[in-house]
Simulated scan of single mutants.
Amino acid sequence: MFVFALSFAALLCVTSAWPAISGRENDYPSEDESEEVRSAAIKRLLEVFGMEDPPAVHVHKQPPQYMLDLYNTVADVDGVTKDPYLLEGNIVRSFFDKLGSEQVEFKFNLSTVARSEKVLAAELHLFKLRPQGSLTFSRQHFCQVSVYQLLDIRKTNSTQTKKLLSSRLIPVHSAGWEVFTVTQAVRSWMADEDSNLGLHVVVRTLEGSQTDLKLMRFASGRHHHQSKQPMLVLFTDDGRRSAALGSTNPHEAISTSFLSQIPVLDKSSRSARSIDYSEEEVRSKPCQRLPLYVDFEEIGWSGWIVSPRGYNAYHCKGSCSFPLGQNMRPTNHATVQSIINALKLIRGIETPCCVPDKLFSINLLYFDDDENVVLKQYNDMVAGSCGCH
Results as ranks from 00 to 15, higher is better:
V3R: 13
V3W: 14
F4M: 09
A5N: 15
A5F: 12
A9K: 09
L12P: 02
A17E: 15
A17W: 14
A20I: 02
A20W: 13
S22D: 15
S22Y: 09
R24K: 10
E25K: 08
N26A: 13
S30N: 04
E33P: 00
D53R: 08
P54K: 08
P55Y: 05
A56T: 07
K61A: 08
Q62A: 03
P63H: 02
V74N: 09
A75C: 12
D76W: 10
D76S: 05
D78I: 00
T81G: 05
K82Y: 11
L86C: 06
L87M: 15
G89K: 09
N90V: 04
S94T: 13
F96T: 05
G100R: 12
S101K: 10
F106R: 08
S116E: 15
E117W: 10
E123H: 11
L129R: 07
T136W: 03
R139D: 11
R139V: 02
Q140K: 06
Q140V: 02
Q140P: 00
F142D: 00
C143H: 03
Q149G: 08
R154L: 13
T156W: 14
T156Y: 15
N157M: 14
K162R: 14
L165E: 15
R168F: 08
H173G: 01
F180E: 03
V182F: 03
Q184M: 04
V186R: 03
S188V: 04
S188F: 06
A191N: 12
L199S: 06
V201T: 02
R204C: 00
E207N: 01
E207Q: 00
G208C: 01
S209T: 02
S209Y: 00
Q210P: 00
Q210H: 01
L213M: 02
L215R: 00
M216Y: 01
R217C: 02
S220A: 05
R222Y: 07
H225F: 05
H225G: 09
S227G: 04
S227K: 11
K228E: 14
K228W: 12
Q229P: 03
M231C: 08
T236C: 14
G239C: 09
R240W: 11
R240D: 15
N249Q: 09
N249C: 05
E252I: 00
L259I: 03
I262W: 10
L265P: 01
K267D: 13
K267R: 12
R270K: 11
R273S: 11
S274C: 09
D276W: 12
E280T: 07
V282W: 10
R283W: 13
S284V: 05
S284G: 08
K285I: 07
P286I: 13
P291H: 08
L292C: 06
V294W: 08
V294P: 05
D295G: 08
E297A: 12
W301S: 03
V306F: 10
S307Q: 15
P308D: 15
C320N: 14
L324G: 05
Q326I: 06
R329K: 10
P330H: 04
V336S: 12
V336K: 11
L343S: 13
K344R: 12
L345K: 07
E350Y: 07
C353S: 10
C354P: 02
C354H: 10
V355D: 05
V355Q: 10
P356V: 04
P356Q: 06
L359T: 01
F360E: 10
N363W: 06
F367Q: 04
D370G: 07
N372D: 14
V374P: 06
K376Q: 15
Q377G: 06
N379W: 11
V382F: 04
C386V: 01
G387Q: 04
G387N: 03
H389G: 03
